[in-house]
Nucleic acid binder design. Structure first.
Ligand SMILES: Nc1ncnc2c1ncn2[C@@H]1O[C@H](COP(=O)(O)O)[C@@H](O)[C@H]1O
Ligand SMILES: [Zn+2]
Length: 199
DNA sequence: GTTCTAGAAC
DNA sequence: GTTCTAGAAC
């Protein structure tokens, strides 16, 4: 009789990367200081490449000012958010990106610390896009259009965010193609389907 | 946020 | 038996 195999939980890589900011939710703060991640910056904001891009092009624009999330945004930040929107437009109109369709917006409930604007190509074609939550975070009202956020901030002096319960529902919305009426059976089916829209 | 994997769904 | 997803991670 051979020895019994016992299942041992993967203890993770032995060689850990050098200690960064600590918790995973602070990762953007490190990325903003890492020249390998930074695409562009000016006095007030930094553009970084999303480390787990959910489309062929995916950038994050974050302020240097310590604003943890959209919840902390008020009318004093109008100029900043408009600047982020304008910079996003500059990026999507440059030679590298002008032939693709992009969306710019904020997740209603972000996981990562430091306010950040998603600038993402509309193909949604990426290996890092794996879950229903990923999909719905960019294709439902969980994704708050940047221009509309700016508009509301200007006109009403505040940004209305969906409740935690609403966010949960939005992220659990049944899968649907963002470009046609197709209802996929599951994520792998959806990922295969969206390839039919990629030129 | 991601990774990993147990157990559901097929 | 294989594919897929949901939830723990100290
Ligand atoms: N260390 C990191 N550097 C750059 N981007 C990251 C890092 N960790 C997570 N992300 C991305 O940051 C975004 C955070 O999503 P959210 O907080 O929901 O707006 C996601 O698109 C992640 O892929
Ligand atoms: Zn479609």
């Amino acid at each position: 009789m051979g020895p019994k195999r016992i299942l041992v939980k993967n203890q993770g890589n032995v060689a850990k990367k050098p200690k960064l900011s600590g918790h995973w939710s602070l990762g953007l703060l490190d990325a903003m200081k890492d020249p390998e991640c930074v695409v562009k910056e000016d006095d007030t904001v930094v553009v970084i490449k999303d480390k787990y891009p959910k489309a062929e092009f995916h950038y994050l624009i974050a302020p240097k000012e310590d604003i943890s999330s959209l919840k902390k945004v008020d009318k004093t930040h109008i100029d900043l958010l408009e600047h982020m929107q304008e910079l996003a437009e500059t990026i999507v109109n440059d030679n590298q990106h002008k032939d693709k369709s992009f969306r710019m917006g904020y997740h209603a409930e972000a996981s990562m610390v430091r306010l950040h604007l998603h600038v993402i190509s509309n193909d949604m074609n990426s290996n890092a896009l794996k879950t229903k939550k990923h999909w719905n975070s960019f294709t439902t009202d969980f994704f708050l259009d940047s221009k509309e956020v700016c508009k509301q901030l200007k006109e009403e002096g505040t940004v209305t965010l969906p409740s935690a319960e609403t966010c949960k529902k939005l992220l659990d919305t049944p899968l649907k193609c963002h470009k046609c009426e197709y209802i996929p059976k599951h994520m792998p089916d959806l990922k295969k389907h969206i390839m039919t829209h990629v030129q």
